[in-house]
Design a protein around this nucleic acid. Structure first.
Length: 244
DNA sequence: AAATGCTTCAACCGCGCTCAT
DNA sequence: AATGAGCGCGGTTGAAGCATT
């Protein structure tokens, strides 16, 4: 058993430099070999941690900000259908991650529970069946409550339901429902890949990167928006790949 | 203005699955 | 066929920000 020098492994919030570094190496090597990326990047993070950071935060296709009412409705509907299959549900919501949806659900579940408690003495069970009753009357969810538009992030996503214009293209990512022991749902990676693949050929290898700084160049995720900001607000790229 | 409680979300953990050897 | 490494998923936690008192 090889004991990895655990003191080397960093945990906790990611720094700006780490984000830049990770994005650089993901663009270089793809978003598959996370352990490899973790090693070659020099990041003192596990492959898992790198993957999570990329999928949930750095991926250019991500939407930011609260879920739209329409998205909320979908989450409720699909949760009634599939239960806590967050990644599966996320597959139906372009630009949303399983983590995001999971958090949303927990948040609203809690709210809903406290509301229910006030109204009735029946303990609200959190089964999908009880949820389905909620889904039929989504007004139970108090949208006005949730929150901040992602602290300091400059990705501009319209907050109305029209931003869901990619949704149809996602429906096919779900193969047959769970049949055996294996999960039948396509992973987020597959989804992202399918989104990004048409652009892959256009990826320009990052030019210079002597050291990583706020000047580091990152692949332009050109299919998504005209302009992109790195969540940390320090990096902006444009459709043509230029940095601003 | 300060203290307290609540909400949100980023990140970690453990488990199970897949795939390469 | 067996084994181990890597990956993905769902559950959980803790810090930070916000709201209320």
């Amino acid at each position: 058993m090889v004991v990895k020098d655990q003191e080397e492994v960093r945990k906790g919030p990611w720094t700006e430099e780490e984000d830049v570094q990770l994005a650089f190496y993901v663009n270089l090597f793809g978003d598959r070999r996370w352990d490899f990326i973790a090693k070659v990047s020099g990041l003192k993070r596990t492959g898992k941690s790198c993957r999570l950071r990329w999928v949930n935060y750095l991926h250019p296709g991500l939407k930011r900000g609260k879920l739209t009412p329409n998205e909320e409705r979908l989450v409720i509907e699909y949760h009634a259908k599939w239960g806590n299959r967050w990644s599966k549900i996320a597959g139906k919501l372009p630009g949303r991650t399983d983590n995001e949806i999971k958090n949303f659900w927990r948040t609203h579940l809690r709210k809903n529970n406290s509301q229910e408690k006030k109204k009735t003495t029946i303990p609200p069970s959190i089964s999908s069946t009880s949820i389905s009753s909620v889904s039929s009357s989504s007004s139970n969810f108090n949208n006005s409550h949730h929150v901040h538009s992602m602290q300091g992030h400059r990705i501009d996503i319209s907050d109305d339901s029209t931003s869901r214009n990619n949704s149809t293209s996602f429906s096919h990512y779900h193969k047959e429902d769970k049949g055996g022991s294996s999960r039948q749902v396509c992973s987020m990676d597959e989804i992202w890949n399918d989104i990004a693949l048409p652009e892959v050929d256009a990826i320009i290898p990052p030019p210079v990167c002597g050291g990583f700084s706020q000047d580091a160049t990152i692949m332009p995720p050109s299919i998504w928006e005209d302009n992109y900001y790195c969540p940390n607000n320090s990096i902006l790229w444009t459709v043509d790949g230029g940095l601003l």
